[in-house]
Design a protein around this nucleic acid. Structure first.
Lengths: 343, 343
DNA sequence: GTGAAAGCGCTAACAC
DNA sequence: GTGTTAGCGCTTTCAC
């Protein structure tokens, strides 16, 4: 690493024998500069290895090109998929996305919001950890905010959502159509909208189909792998275990599969069927392969980028909500071998 | 979103009837301020919802608190695991980590380096896309650089590495000890150090054990899932297919497993054994569960953070290399059922 | 077509 | 203890 300091526009100006204003004009292609001066400046820029200072620029123009993204778990592919879509779209507008992990924790989320505030992010995309915990902090952001995947208890911000009810409905209908009668669910946290909606969509649909779920078939998890495992085992251990289980997110599905795999006498596709919410890398590797409700995750990032960029241009326009549809991917795990006999 | 502008230190000063210097002192707890003035300032700070401007501060102090991380694939858990370790460690020093994706592409990597340069990152941790492509750009960085997982063709920077040779060696030895004679490998890109080292460690060890690998057992992949799949099928299609395959990274292992799964007559643990480099979520779900060479990924991030923070304090100290040891996790997939008969 | 100078928000001497 | 002031690196009037 060279020990020289960063070059400034002033260094360049001196070397090119012009004023700093002219250098600035050359760099930003703003205003007219004589061809010869321009090349002289360009040469100096090059020779000194000038790298513009983004902060100084932002200070002078009162606007950064930072876009903030706050995710509940950076290790979850869902987060990086959103980042991916967001980043690609934002890049076209010269914006750089800064992703921060809240660890699904309100306190860390608060810190993340502050950090992005300090850096004067031009917009913030967030999957809130809690529907109300940081309401005030978000409300006081001096910048557009767009919520992804989860609502807040106030409906003040642009929103990109998945139709969870519809997704759960499709899962329920497929189980019924396949011939299952004893159907269980491993639900997610009931203080998050997706958790509530997926459960409701599933239970309501079964009710419409004339199947009332006994309470012991409804397990309340927390969207973590561990709870999928534990609750999966509890379901399998029932005197009269369900023949089909709907797992409300991918981590819990992983846990559930482990539970089935390790439980004496239980076997995927033989004694128990599974549909999971969210596609996972292993879904084609299980036997039978996993039927899932899949979300267009990257597209959610793209939509969020568009909503927030639209709002950057028209801060006062009405709140918008984009709801994307989930897609049922049938691969086989919704069935079990002996099912037809029992109908 | 409130339409008011961000409050400045000047707004606060006016409201608290003090000078901006005093406000600054209160905010940064530098210098002495009378208790009463301090509370008056604190009150104004609170009432105005003041949020410090990180750029202005950085400009005045000539030092940001941004630490850059450039990863080859943000969707790869390896990247986020490194981020995780890095972030936790950096946070203690008041540094915020900004992760940027290079898509393992030299041009995008160049852009990422420039971006972090413009934002005056205090340090850059990078897994370079190519051993030489951006050498000049990295050399001209005015900030400490630390390489993770891959070397560059010049040895000028701090380094956090995994002992790939040793990892591959352990895999080879386990295969031999298990009784395999026909052993294949799906190698990674040969223009990356890990790709070369893992192949060499594996081949050399087998040679030491008196097992020379026929050329058709050595497949050259590119670290992507697709190549694991394709090359896996090619290995299985050989007249005399290997009974054991070493896959050089997790994505190719996923592909390989798919290949085995879908190939007529092939079966994990029955006709073919597998060891993979890097642990993956599904490793306990396959049947038999997957034996892998595991890397302490998060620890690599921690080490990188420490190296770079040490260098921030002593830019001139000698180059340091940290080599972390991989760990063999034996779960069963290194064996096949009929093997003992053939010894 | 080009330069001088003010100002963005903040910190850090330096006075008092 | 507190205020005044000179920058930090850049953009942007406003002159010429």
């Amino acid at each position: 690493m060279p020990q020289t300091r960063h070059r400034t526009i002033k260094d360049v100006a001196e070397r090119a024998q012009v004023s700093t204003a002219t250098v600035s004009r050359v760099i930003n292609r703003t205003g007219n500069v004589h061809f010869q001066t321009a090349t002289r400046v360009a040469k100096a820029l090059e020779e000194l290895g000038y790298v513009p200072n983004a902060w100084a620029r932002a200070m002078a123009t009162d606007g950064s090109d930072v876009m903030g993204l706050i995710v509940p778990d950076i290790l979850n592919p869902f987060s990086t998929a959103i980042y991916s879509g967001l980043n690609e779209t934002a890049k076209h507008r010269g914006l750089a996305v800064w992703m921060v992990d809240s660890a699904d924790d309100s306190e860390q989320e608060r810190q993340a919001l502050h950090m992005l505030g300090r850096y004067r992010a031009q917009g913030i995309i967030i999957t809130p950890a809690h529907p109300a915990a940081n309401l005030a902090a978000i409300e006081h952001m001096r910048t557009p905010v767009c919520l992804v995947d989860r609502r807040l208890s106030k409906n003040l911000w642009d929103l990109v959502l998945i139709d969870n009810v519809n997704g759960a409905r499709q899962a329920a209908q497929l189980f019924v159509a396949t011939g299952h009668h004893r159907i269980g669910i491993i639900a997610g946290s009931q203080d998050s909208t997706p958790g509530v909606e997926r459960l409701r969509g599933f239970v309501d649909t079964l009710a419409e189909e004339g199947l009332d779920m006994p309470p012991e078939y409804i397990m309340f998890g927390d969207f973590r792998e561990k709870s999928g495992f534990t609750l999966g085992r509890e379901l399998l251990a029932l005197d009269d275990p369900p023949t089909a289980i709907f797992s409300c997110n991918s981590l819990m599905t992983m846990g559930l599969l482990q539970a089935i795999h390790s439980y004496p006498g239980a076997m995927l596709g033989e004694t128990v069927a599974v549909i999971g919410f969210d596609d996972i890398p292993i879904s084609t590797l299980t036997d039978p392969p996993l039927t899932v409700i899949s979300r267009p995750m990257k597209e959610m990032g793209v939509q969020a980028a568009q909503l927030i960029m639209a709002r950057m241009e028209a801060p006062e326009k009405g709140q918008e909500t984009v709801v994307l549809g989930p897609q049922l991917i049938i691969r086989g795990s919704e069935k079990i071998a002996g099912l037809l006999r029992w109908i």
